[in-house]
Design a protein around this nucleic acid. Structure first.
Length: 465
RNA sequence: GCCCUCAUCGUCUAUCGGUUAGGACAGGAGAUUCUCAAUCUUCAAAGCGGGGUUCGAUUCCCCGUGGGGGCACCA
């Protein structure tokens, strides 16, 4: 049996979005599951709308998601292969050869300067109400497709169609089929929006005398709010955005897998190896799925909490590096010692919901000139006996044991006991004085990481304001 | 308008003729707690409608309805 060869064939005419990513992902999963080949083919025949920036975005996004391609343009460690070139703009000669074949065997003809594919059957004219013009139709049986996800699909294709434009450029249907033949693609996994095109494609395969590959049309991702499928203009649609916001790619991939597929049981958060092992075409859903950013965020949190300390700190540093140029907090964080940075990050890991919270959440650890939120100040000072607590705590700091969170907690509790208070009486004002914020890591951890000197300075300064 | 396609909680989904219709996210309540989260417990929440087939339909078939996609010398 010949090995499975699948391809992802994006066109560099816009930002790389969720829908494309999932199509790429399902192709990649199937290839990996079957031990086959994942091909990246760039469909850049639309000269007007192509751009190198979008092309590079495709490479960058696939890399970020971990969807490495075995054949395709050589980028990083990816690509190569014996069926290139893998950019359609460089395959003109191939298309010409195939078109000539059609012309020679009578399955294509010229009209109005363009080349049309010829359907086999009797022709008749009819007025098309929708398009407001007379069209020539062909009497022939419908195309029957065996879709791996949808089962049997039947559709009548009864009009000849253009395969090469009058300007000499081949159209999508032609190049798509030619390349799938030339690159020996065995399974075409693509969005359901292509289902109606498939009848044309099957006729083309027939014209070339080639048995069509297997088709698998995956359901579409619907936009979170409002009607219709998700497009690159919709909120949360761009892969780039998740990358920028510090989402973990493995979380996004896991989430995307669950949009239209499931392992057959209740499991959701799964390592990619397990997903590869279980993934298969028949288990892909048939109905469209609505995008849900809350669930994605939850998935991201799950992965975030599960990161090992070293991994988390490394990724946090990478995130700070990326935003560093534009953020003061990030720049200061990067300037701190590696040990201190690590301690701060590990304090924050269990508390944040995403990497993008890190600069704000941890800013005061690195910046002594942090601002005190006036609203928080008002709230904290308006409750209980905060100033007395502040003074008592300040006085106790020089002798407080800073050796561990527990020691700090015991120390403050002892103080509280001696004054007839509770730990909770000191916490709000201490947090305000030391961080300026209403929420954050445990006050004991915060004290320990900042160290006695910094805590003292901040506590003292608080009274002066 | 024509063609294709889909249909279980608000959302993602399990069920492959017989279940108290399960899980997850979101939402409500409670527990825990030094803030905020997280976590744990818990509550509420679904088979689009109508016909069949069958001893029995969420499940199979048909018709409606609703959603989605397509109908170019775009991809």
């Amino acid at each position: 049996m010949s090995p499975v060869r699948v391809r992802f064939a994006p066109s560099p005419t816009g930002f790389f979005h969720i829908g494309s990513a999932r199509t790429a992902l399902f192709n990649w999963l199937y290839a990996r599951h079957m031990g086959g080949v994942f091909i990246l083919r760039i469909e850049d025949t639309d000269k007007e709308r192509n751009s190198d920036a979008f092309l590079n975005l495709i490479y960058a996004s696939l890399n970020w998601l971990g969807l490495n391609w075995d054949e395709g343009p050589k980028v990083g460690g990816n690509g190569g292969g014996d069926f290139g070139p893998y950019r359609q703009s460089e395959r003109g000669a191939v298309y010409k050869k195939y078109v000539d074949q059609l012309l020679a065997n009578g399955r294509a003809y010229e009209k109005d300067g363009a080349i049309w594919f010829k359907l086999l059957g009797d022709r008749y004219e009819v007025f098309d109400e929708h398009r407001k013009k007379t069209v020539t139709k062909v009497t022939l049986p419908p195309v029957v497709m065996a879709d791996a996800i949808r089962g049997r699909v039947e559709r009548l294709e009864d009009e000849d169609f253009v395969i090469v434009r009058s300007d000499g450029n081949p159209v999508f249907h032609l190049v798509n089929v030619v390349d799938d033949i030339a690159m020996q693609v065995t399974h075409i996994i693509r969005g359901e929006d292509h289902l109606s095109n498939t009848s044309k494609h099957v006729h083309l395969y027939d014209g070339f005398g080639v048995k069509p590959p297997a088709f698998a049309h995956i359901p579409l991702i619907l936009k979170q709010n409002g009607p219709g499928k998700m497009s690159k203009r919709d909120q949360g649609a761009l892969i780039e955005e998740y990358q920028r916001r510090g989402y973990l790619p493995e979380a996004l991939v896991n989430f995307l897998c669950l949009l239209g597929w499931n392992p057959g049981d209740d499991r959701e958060k799964m390592p990619i190896e397990e997903i590869i092992r279980l993934f298969d075409l028949p288990s892909v859903n048939q109905s469209n799925a609505r995008f849900d950013d809350k669930k994605l965020a939850h998935m991201n949190l799950g992965y975030l909490l599960a990161l090992t300390p070293d991994d988390f700190v490394g990724r946090a540093r990478a995130y700070f590096s990326r935003v560093g140029v534009s953020g003061v907090a990030a720049a200061l964080a990067l300037a701190a010692s590696a040990d201190y940075f690590r301690e701060v990050m590990l304090l924050c890991q269990p508390k944040i919901k995403g990497m993008d919270e890190l600069p704000t959440y941890s800013g005061y650890f690195f910046n002594d000139d942090f601002e005190i939120d006036p609203k928080v100040r008002e709230k904290v000072l308006g409750k209980g006996d905060p100033l007395a607590c502040w003074q008592e705590l300040l006085a106790a700091l020089p002798t407080l044991d800073f050796s561990s969170d527990l020691a700090i907690e015991d120390g403050i509790k002892a103080l509280a006991l001696s004054r007839g208070r509770g730990f909770g009486d000191y916490q709000p004002v201490a947090r305000l004085a030391v961080s300026g914020m209403a929420a954050g890591p445990s006050i004991t951890g915060m004290f320990r990481v900042l160290g006695r000197d910094r805590v003292m300075v901040r506590m003292s300064r608080f009274g002066a304001v």
